[in-house]
């Protein structure tokens, strides 16, 4: 019951236009639009996958994974490219993960909020959108040749797995840092306060409470960043990855080729068979990507589950 001394302004049904039909129509239109958006994406992907699979399935076999590149399409294989990419990605992760997570912990948990910190923060975000070829040029000077024009010249690592992985690590570092920061931010501050309340130090709090809770998010971010790095061609070409390599790396200072480079080389050949080989290469690359993304989902689920108990 409304009190009589507070007269409310009533909207009469004559003023309020229901327009039920129009509102429902707008709703239906929006659903249709959203569905079209989704469908276009899915259909395009399906067409692409179908095209690639149709061309690529012919050469896909264990021999393909176990042979080195050849001028004869029926003998040509993906071995050096596949293993080159695996070496490259393993070391990229090895450099990028500790550096990225370390930077994120510092920025979120230790750094005081001042101008320097926000300057660093802005630069990290900007670096995430710098074209990858720029990182290739940086890697060529810094890691391959070992000179930047200023300071000592240390000789460089040559066109090696080490130089390639360091460059790719720089490339994905901003993405890893931002992802790790977001994951750390998502840990409720009540957790930290409870830990401090029990007398834990800052590092103990981070070590036992913040990091374990943030880990699934950090892992997912890192793996997705690495998955991006595995498809990168431009920086590797700039810093001088090779196209014909008939061995797999046996050390970080070995020369290498990578999956996208081999695929690119095959697509530019005049012979139609090489185009199909490129499609087979794309299928292998997609499979590796899918595996990595599956691992990301699995880790998120697994660690997420552990910390809740």
């Amino acid at each position: 019951m409304s009190s009589p001394e507070q007269p409310t302004k009533r909207i009469t049904s004559s003023q309020f236009r229901v327009r039920l039909r129009a509102r429902h129509l707008t709703g239906t239109l929006f659903v249709a639009l959203a569905m079209i958006g989704t469908t276009i994406g899915v259909v395009l992907l399906a067409v692409l996958l179908f095209e690639v699979a149709r061309d690529g399935v012919r050469f896909l076999s264990l021999d393909f994974l176990n042979s080195f590149p050849s001028r004869k399409p029926e003998l040509a294989g993906f071995k050096s490219a596949l293993w080159g990419s695996i070496w490259l990605i393993t070391f990229t992760a090895l450099w990028a993960f500790p550096l990225g997570v370390g930077a994120a912990i510092y920025l979120e948990e230790y750094a005081s909020k001042n101008r320097v910190t926000s300057l660093i923060q802005i630069n990290v975000s900007n670096l995430a959108s710098v074209p990858s070829i720029v990182f290739g040029l940086l890697g060529l000077q810094l890691f391959v040749r070992g000179t930047v024009g200023i300071g000592p010249d240390f000789g460089g690592f040559g066109r090696s797995v080490l130089a390639g992985s360091l460059t790719l690590a720089l490339l994905i570092l901003p993405v890893v840092i931002v992802a790790a920061q977001e994951a750390i931010k998502a840990v409720p501050s009540s957790t930290r306060e409870a830990s401090y309340g029990l007398g834990a130090t800052r590092w103990q709090t981070i070590q036992h409470h913040v990091l374990p809770q943030a880990l699934p998010g950090i892992m997912t971010g890192t793996i997705l960043a690495i998955a991006r790095a595995i498809g990168e061609t431009a920086p590797l070409i700039v810093l001088g990855a090779f196209t014909f390599v008939a061995f797999t790396p046996s050390g970080v200072l070995d020369s290498f080729t990578a999956m996208p480079i081999q695929i690119y080389s095959w697509t530019s050949r005049p012979q139609a068979d090489f185009q199909d080989l490129a499609a087979s290469g794309i299928l292998v690359l997609l499979f590796v990507l899918l595996t990595m993304n599956t691992i990301a989902v699995f880790l998120r689920h697994r660690f997420g589950h552990l910390t809740k108990n």
Binding site: V144, G155, G156, F157, G158, R159, S160, G251, L253, S255
Partner: peptide, 10 residues
């Protein structure tokens, strides 16, 4: 085994 093919290193 490490094989080097460094730039400028003969």
């Amino acid at each position: 085994m490490f094989l080097t093919s460094c730039g400028g290193n003969d």
